[in-house]
Structures are given as structure tokens and as C-alpha cells.
Amino acid sequence: MQNRFRKIVESSGPYLGLIFLTIALTILTGGEVIAPGNIKLVLEQSIILIFASTGLIFVMTMGMLDLSVGANICICCYMVAKVCQVNIPLGILTALLTGILVGFLNGVLTGRYKIMSFLVTLCTRYIINGLMVPLIAKEAVTVPFALYSYDNFGFKITVLILLVGAAGCLYMFTPFGNRVRMIGSNELGASYSGVNVRQVKIGCYMICGAFGAVAAFFTAIRTGTAALNTGSDMMFNALIALVMGGFPARGGAKARFSSCVVGGLVLSILTNGLTLLEMDATLQQFLKGGIFLLIIVLVSEKKRSGGGRLRLRLRTES
């Protein structure tokens, strides 16, 4: 019974959640949520989130974490704002390279030096924040006026479809994507099967960094400034989005790419609906944290291990 319930939650849960949430919020807000203007707003809000979680999905599939997503967005946002004042394409390129560099550092530290990803990215997060303090603590940098021309819905959606589509193909239809999932399933086994684990790890963090930079670009043109708190909520939001999208918390072979898109939408609708209901922002965080834990508990594998003696793996046959 519990088993079947878990299977349903795992396979179609995110979609059911999306539908249920939309209906519930529609009723609660008296239809405000599905007003055409609001739908567009929700989509627009979800774009940055989907970019961030698309990058994160590669890292998390390997069973690793990236806590530096928010800080990465912050520094890339600064690059966009600062360098675009000189030249717009150069600014975008600089931001992209910065994001990739941050990812590369994370990748080398976890892949080459085999330090726990949680520690590495927690440290890079604080290092980047520390770097940003002297630059923008006193005064936020304003994005040059010319960039606002990119702030149109059609452009954003096109970029989203192209980039996330490309990432999806990479994830689902290439040997690289397969190797990522196999590392998540059994890292040691992957290295014995001839997978270059170090290379794949660095690659995943670089993808994550690059998508952080893209998210940063759209954050910049949306908010118009690069400040210290830019992107600070993204670390946790991208994580919740994935989990809400049905992503197994430990990654591995069962991970589905759709999680980042579905999860991004679910979380955005939830945030939007709660804001329409005039719920306090702090209270919203409380609620999101609670939902996050609830999902993790519901989908976590319940293993029956006998008391004091530990048997790590129960075989199902023989």
C-alpha cells in the first residue's frame, strides 16, 4: 500500500501537484491566479527559477549539491551590470565565463580533490559573497538602460526553450547524460566501468555555473540592479523546485529531467498564489520549508533494517 502510494507520488505526483495547486489557489483567490495577465506573470517569474534548477539538476543527479547557485547569480549579475555599461555582448560573455569559472572551481574541488560537494559549495558561496562586499555593499550597481530592451516576454521564452531544450537533450539523449545518472547510481561502479568520473563532475558543475549566469542575466534585466542580496533566495528555491518536480533527493538513475521545468512552474505558482493571498514573505518561507520536508519524507525509501545489527542492502531474490 505504502509502496504503491510512493510509486504514484514519484511518477505523476508533480503533475498532480501542479493541477491541484492551480485549482486550489484559483478557488482561494477567486480566480485571480488564472487571469491571463497573472499567468504571464507566473511564467515570467518561473523563467529564472527554471534556468537555475536546470543547471542544478546535472549536479544533483550525481548525488551532489551546489549551494553556491545564489552567490554565483550574484557575481554574474554584477558582471552583467558592470561590463554591459561598456559593451553589451562583452558583458553577457563575461558573465557567462564567470559562471563557468565558478562551476569549474566547484568541479575541480569536488572531482579532483574529492571534497564533499556540500562543503565545497558552501565555502565558494561565502568566498563569492566576501568578494562582492567591497564591490557592491555600499551601493548597488544599476543595469544600463539599453539592457531593458531584452526584458520582453517573447525573447525570454525563446531563450528558455532553446537553452533548456538543449540541456534536456544533453541530459536524456547523450552518453554524457547517461554517465551523469550512472555516477549518481554508483560512483565506484562507474569508475570501474571506465567512466571518467572527474571529468563528468567538472562538466556538470560548469553547466550548473553557466545556467547560473543565464539566470543572472535575466535577474539583472528584471530587477535592474546588482545588489548583495541578489539571488540569495535562489539556492534554496532551485532545490525546492527540483524536489517539487519529483526529483529523488539523492539523485541517481531514477532522476527525470522534467523535474526542473515542472518544479519551477509549481513553485512559481505557489509563490504567486501565496502573494496574491497576501501572505507574509517570512511565513511563505516557513511554508516552503515545511512542504520541502514533507515531500522528502513521503518519497524517501523506507528501509527496514533490524535493530542493532545493520544490514545495508536487502536483496529481493535468492
Binding site: 550512472m182 547510481s185 565506484l188 561502479g189 562507474a190
Partner: peptide, 16 residues
């Protein structure tokens, strides 16, 4: 530990 990906499908195991 070293040969198989137990939670992955037989397909993924062979194709790796």
C-alpha cells in the same frame, strides 16, 4: 559495489 548499478536498469548497466 564495483560492477553493477543496482538501482539503475539492466539497460543502463549494459550500455554504460
Amino acid at each position: 559495489m564495483e560492477s553493477l548499478f543496482n538501482q539503475a536498469s539492466i539497460r543502463d548497466n549494459i550500455c554504460i
